[in-house]
Design a protein around this nucleic acid. Structure first.
Length: 112
DNA sequence: GGCGTGACTATGG
DNA sequence: ACCATAGCCACGC
């Protein structure tokens, strides 16, 4: 057994979680990491997002930001900001307005 | 294994 | 609200 398979499982879980994020809502890397059972893998989630290939996988990676509601992404941030704005989300200085209200907890879909 | 780097998070000033 | 620091994990050299 290879350890890489564990990472693959995590990647699949992350994909599944992100795909459950509804339109006009956003979540954070840490929340996803926690939801899949790896609370300290928030960084890994970010890495996975960079490899998610949202164009092909149809994964709304633009709805995933850091715990402060800030668009940390580099090459994608312009596109991400545009996409979020298109969903009715207000962005100011790379930061989501009403972040607290727009935040969607993936745990709500898993637990219960 | 060490060291640097990265789409992270929590805490403190 | 902003910046600094520490902790975290995976990857490449």
């Amino acid at each position: 057994m290879k350890k890489s398979e564990d990472r693959v499982a995590i990647v699949k879980a992350v994909y599944d979680i992100v795909l459950t994020v509804p339109y006009g809502r956003v979540t954070s890397y840490g929340a996803i990491a926690k939801a899949i059972g790896y609370p300290n893998h928030s960084r890994l989630v970010g890495k996975i997002m960079s490899e998610c290939d949202s164009v092909n996988t149809k994964i709304p990676a633009h709805r995933v930001v850091n715990s402060q509601g800030i668009l940390s992404a580099g090459n994608v941030f312009m596109d991400q900001q545009n996409l979020l704005k298109d969903e009715g989300i207000i962005i100011i200085n790379n930061r989501i307005k009403n972040w607290k209200k727009l935040f969607w907890d993936p745990m709500l879909e898993i637990t219960m």
